[in-house]
Design a binder for these strands. Structure first.
Lengths: 193, 193
DNA sequence: GTTTTCATTGATTGACGAGTCAATAAAAAC
DNA sequence: GTTTTTATTGACTCGTCAATCAATGAAAAC
């Protein structure tokens, strides 16, 4: 019963299944068979479309980052003024979506993968650059020449608080993290006056 | 030629070898045989002393965190005044030691492990609490009632910048990260006046 | 000096897993 | 309607690896 044009459908199903399985195990220690089974196909087919397990992971990473990017763009679309835009970037990063078990697991494991896999590293750099460039752009009118440094600090604070919330003692609260970054933002703005 | 009292020696050798191997592979995907071989013994002996691979990892994590803690304590011992003590904590975290390949790999993988392993999570919480408590203690005289919030932000910034430096486009520079956190610290102090 | 305890390993077990391949089947192209 | 292309899988290969165990040797205890 082979229907044509299955490739994109299969690929998408495999990517979804990969993220789910990584979320369940917490590691990249998931087998192609597990992934394929959850995606409703044989492991041979997964290999057919992706070639190797590593490529499946890369695709999953790309998808996770693209969901993140979409969230940021969505929030930016509604934001008013530079301060509002920065707030949008912050809130998007700490949305409950991003603290779901699978998403946290995906990020942590992608960090690990980025150490040794050039493609993974490149994707992470794109994410880092986009965040920095967004922040610099909107910080400029608020803090002028301090924008570059401030952006670096805000971006670092976002990543760090995400980590601490995700692995902290309490269940992750995006609200608390958001408050903290906004406070830091206000300090940056205040210092520029 | 069995000599007595080998246990602590073997355990230490295994822990060292584990960290080295994790550094080489970037993952926890290292075999007990690799570790044991590097430590100069059979894999059976490694199992004899640690029981399981997971316990070897936990011991390696404990050791890594304890080295980190020792670095912080060493820096604190020489520091003068609250501001100096905070600076010491920051500099210790970003010392070149902590950016060595093995150490970065250890941290990233311990984050992953902490998702699913209670012991690993507990160790990470101890680290987080100690950092926060150090910061709160010394921020108090500098920023008064703002100390808790400021400590959360400084701690988050340290973790986040460490991540970004470790996985960033340039080779990690503790100096740049240190400068950024000190700048944030000055903003916090300035805001409390 | 015999027994117990500690150190140590080679060999083995039992399981699992990534990637390949030949074979089947159906749609599309010609 | 024959050929080509796409979809799909079961079976298989080749390898790996964590954990166990029985066996060996030497120190310590008695």
């Amino acid at each position: 019963m082979p229907k044509l044009g299955m490739e994109p459908i299969r690929r998408a199903a495999l990517v979804d299944a990969t993220i789910t399985e990584i979320g369940k195990s917490g590691t990249l220690d998931v087998t192609v068979s597990q992934i394929a089974k959850r995606a409703g196909m044989s492991s041979a087919l997964a290999h057919h479309y992706f070639g190797s397990k590593e490529q499946i992971f890369i695709a999953a990473m790309r998808h996770t980052l693209s969901l993140y990017g979409a969230g940021v763009r969505g929030a930016l679309a509604m934001a008013q003024g530079p301060r509002g835009r920065i707030e949008a970037v912050i809130r998007a990063g700490f949305s409950t979506t991003n603290f779901r078990r699978e998403v946290v697991a995906a990020w942590l494991n992608f960090y690990v993968l980025a150490q040794t896999n050039a493609e993974a590293r490149a994707l992470l750099l794109i994410y880092q650059n986009r965040m920095r460039s967004n922040l610099v752009h909107d910080l400029r009118p608020l803090v002028g020449g301090r924008a570059e440094g401030a952006a670096e600090r805000i971006a670092g604070l976002i990543d760090g608080l995400y980590l601490r919330e995700a692995l902290g003692r309490t269940l992750p609260s995006g609200d608390e993290a958001t408050r903290q970054v906004l406070e830091a933002l206000d300090l940056e703005i205040g210092a520029a006056k």
